[in-house]
Design a protein around this nucleic acid. Sequence first.
RNA 1: GUGGCUGUAGCUCAGUCGGUUAGAGCGCCUGGUUGUGGCCCAGGAGGUCGGGGGUUCGAAUCCCCUCAGCCACCCCA
Length: 431
Amino acid sequence: MGKKTEPIPGASDIFPAEVAEWLLLEAEARRVFGLYGYGEVRTPVMERTAVFERSIGEQTDVVQKEMYTFEDRGGRSLTLRPEGTAGIMRALVDNGIPQGDEKRVYYIGPMFRGERPAAGRKRQFHQIGAECVGTVAPETDIETIEMLMRYFDAIGIRNTRLLVNSRGTVADRPKIADTLAAYFGDHLDDICEDCRRRLESNVWRILDCKNEACGNIVTGAPAITDLLSAESRDFFQRACDRLDLLELPYTVDPRLVRGLDYYEHTVYEIAFDGIGAQNSLAGGGRYAIEVPGHNQVVHGTGFAIGMERIILARHELGVATAAGNGIDAYLVSIGEEAFAANMKLARDLRRQGFRIAMDLQGRGTKAQMRTANKLEAPVALIRGDDELGRDMIVCKNLSASEQLEVTIADLPAHLQSTVDARFAGAAHAEE
RNA sequence: GUGGCUGUAGCUCAGUCGGUUAGAGCGCCUGGUUGUGGCCCAGGAGGUCGGGGGUUCGAAUCCCCUCAGCCACCCCA
């Protein structure tokens, strides 16, 4: 579409019909997370680049080739946030976390990564995430997962698969990496080109390779859980026990490693089939993050949900979202004087809280009625010069095709009764 | 960043051995006798066929380039 202006690649306009669903998803997140004592934080979409480089990991793909980084007027290197956790940690630490204190926060907003767009993958995408920061216990990991699953339940998403694994602690890493490197080094000829490269850059990712040949080699690889320190193994065992306790079905996936360096101990992913290659609705885990400028490591646990993906999943499941942006009445005018009077009437009714639509172009009665029908107005309020002279207005119930005249003074009460009746009907239908 | 597919009215698309003023359905607008919707009927508006270049007497249709979208790789939410 050559000359048309459009959003840049991987960014989308979202119109009212779709926004209704976004609002619902956001509202449910706020409600559910509130049940667990989480409060919303809003941090800038831009941060100093170091904030992300340091915490996500210099060697990760996200930092190396997916960040939108630019220089601002002062020559500072800034980056559009590629994920939410790093900025939240920066904000919390800046604000001071009392020792031993636990902070529970969540965020909702856009993230930016310069990847090639595909199904369920945008360059500007949106995440809902939660972080429980300041304490270290497998129980918080699992409570977080339970909250996440409760959220999915609340928005009608089922048939998900919970995959969990442990990455051990930072101290465990070198030993595991060396063991993996030694193993894959012995199978150099059997793994794909990408994985030979990963052998140098990030051995962990080989475990994640989708290539079938690599899969066979990976199957024979030493399991990470066997290489963990006794302490880490115990941590993971307790996490699994708590999943059992809360009756959350899960699968331990030894190949699940995640792409961000700050993870340690418990990591997990919620997979959903049927929405294309990007089948991960949410991911998260426990992390240890070092914030630039502060010499303390922040421990926390949390997850991020991809909004575009849960919307795809809901559509795949056929979950409907009520539009919720309808009107209470459509005001029909016949004649110049009635039109002017109706403009004032619309103003007054709106002031009283009624959602009113009316024609402002002087179209014919038929056209106005058609529009009322198209907008699914429950009632049409019809007033011409005739009614105007008698201080009356016709109130027509469009679904029942019945109409009666009411006085202008009685109109608000009458309208309210139709609204109440509709509300009661809708509530009844849901049972 | 690499590949595959696609790009014709607001939307979904038809239309290729190149040939008169480019089509359908839906949507939109106006009517079907005075001021009343949903169904039906009749009219109407709306497109430089993504853009540029080339071949040709002539191109939406063939060739090249370009832009955009989707999907996959990759990566992750």
